[in-house]
Write a protein that binds this DNA or RNA. Structure first.
Length: 423
RNA sequence: GGAGACGUGACUGAGCGGCCGAAAGUGCAUCCCUGCUAAGGAUGUGAUGGGGUAACCCAUCCGUGGGUUCAAAUCCCACCGUCUCCGCCA
């Protein structure tokens, strides 16, 4: 949720933010309206309630006839107070609901527009010239099957479309990627965390995932629990309702978890292989940081992600996501996209968002300042996922059907330098 | 699954209809004392929202949500959570 004080003081900033996201700027006026209504209703209720409390004290001291007379008045007041409270509560609920529908305000420099309006900031590494090397490019599934690393057919048999088994070297490769990611995060000062993947509705709603993309989320009705699509949910929920001490720097966590996504709106997209699946694993960085330091921490996240990409020897480009594709919580989002040789396109492998104080305000996570408490900022970002297997297999495939293993993964693969096809 | 106990501020913990936003202690902050440290003394120390130029004032909050009452941390109901014992499973 954005800061209502900012909204009152500078509604134009928020209107402009809405426009750049392709959202409705008139919501701003609805919020202002609802906010004014709420404050008026609240003042009415509070005045009447103060009266009731004062009379209540007199009742306690009075006796006999005087008391009976007071009780007549005070009973009448009680009814009024109850009504005023109900309407103040209703007004508050409406104001908050409207305010919550406003997206975070994009950082200066974020391109406006939708999914295709991103800016390419730079490219690192060159895609290999497979033709010149005499390599006939295979896609990750073909490679994975030759290595006996990926089994889609049995995944579908057991669980349905977009499920898979990672077998043998495939399973080891995933563990290697995630362990390497965990290692990099730990070296960068992040506390390793293994998080719950089932969360209560309050947590899911608090982290902002039940908004526009609620369709994407698995829900267990019998238990009233949601399956998380990222450990960000649990890590953001971790400090809900707390006042943090950030005087010695940000709180940094690296969460390892299974992730579940329904992929409801993406029928027909990326149907082959494990690019887009219902269940995968991910190592996610998450920081709680003083608002003023949020952009610097965001830059740090990007640097760590690039360290991982470079360690895995993948060519990639960096994009600055457009306002309309930020998601409601983010003020800025950088994606790293690795080259996908079989499709000759770039494929998202990491994403890092600066949510500024938007998420923390909603979750009531603050720190103590000189005059009272202030919401902290939250930053999240990927370091490794199952999808990296795709980039790895394709970019490191060799003419003989084997796959080169980058140095960083070898300790986790018993020293293997190449993954060899199984006859 | 059965039986019971309990959820109060940063923490421990008292309060069980009005004098309670809440005793006491710990911690923390400032000051005093002290050669340094330790010990000691004094004062202060919750959050959220609203109003005011300001000192400050008002309201709300004792797990969450309802209810009873003129009045609820305190009584009633539901839910969530924690702990103990028994059973069951591993």
């Amino acid at each position: 949720m954005i800061d209502l004080k900012l909204l009152r003081a500078e509604p134009d900033v928020v209107r402009e933010s809405q426009r750049s996201r392709g959202a409705d700027p008139t919501v701003v006026d609805q919020v202002l309206d609802a906010d004014a209504t709420h404050r008026a209703a609240l003042a009415d209720f509070e005045a009447r309630r103060a009266e009731q409390k004062a009379l209540g004290k007199e009742v306690a001291q009075a006796s006999g006839d005087a008391k009976q007379q007071l009780l007549v008045r005070t009973k009448q007041l009680a009814g009024q107070v109850k009504e005023l409270q109900a309407s103040a509560d209703a007004a508050a609920a409406r104001a908050v609901e409207l305010a919550r529908s406003l997206g975070n305000i994009p950082e200066p420099g974020v391109p406006s527009g939708g999914e295709d309006d991103f800016t390419v900031l730079r490219q690192e590494g060159e895609p290999r010239d497979f033709g010149a090397e005499g390599v006939e490019v295979q896609d990750h599934l073909a490679i994975g099957e030759r290595l006996r690393a990926i089994d889609m057919e049995r995944g579908a048999k057991v669980s349905g479309a977009r499920f898979y088994f990672l077998t043998g070297v495939g399973a080891r490769l995933e563990l290697a990627i995630l362990n390497a990611a965990m290692g990099i995060a730990q070296d960068a000062g992040f506390t390793p965390m293994i998080t719950p993947t089932l969360v209560r509705p309050e947590t899911m709603a608090g982290t902002g995932f039940l908004g526009a993309h609620a369709d994407e989320i698995y829900y267990l009705e019998r238990d009233d629990l949601y399956l998380t699509g990222t450990s960000e949910v649990a890590l953001a929920g971790y400090h809900t309702d707390e006042i943090l001490d950030l005087s010695s720097g940000p709180l940094r966590y690296a969460g390892w978890s299974a992730c579940y996504r329904r992929e409801a709106g993406s029928a027909g997209r990326d149907t082959r292989g494990i690019i887009r699946v219902h269940q995968f694993h991910k190592v996610e960085m998450f920081s709680y940081v003083t608002a003023a330091d949020a952009a610097a921490e965001h830059a740090r996240f990007l640097e760590i992600q690039e360290r991982m990409l470079q360690a895995l020897e993948l060519p990639y480009r960096l994009i600055d996501t457009a306002a309309g594709d930020l998601g409601s919580s983010a003020a800025r989002k950088f994606d790293c996209e690795a080259w996908l040789p079989s499709q000759e396109r770039w494929m998202e492998v990491t994403s890092t968002s600066n949510c500024t104080t938007y998420q923390a305000r909603r979750l009531a996570i603050r720190e103590r300042g000189d005059n009272g408490t202030t919401p902290v900022a939250t930053i999240n970002g990927t370091i490794g996922t199952t999808r990296w297997i795709v980039a790895l297999l394709e970019n490191h495939q060799q003419a003989d059907g084997s796959v080169h293993v980058p140095e960083i993964l070898r300790p986790y693969l018993g020293g293997l330098k190449r993954l060899e096809p199984v006859a």
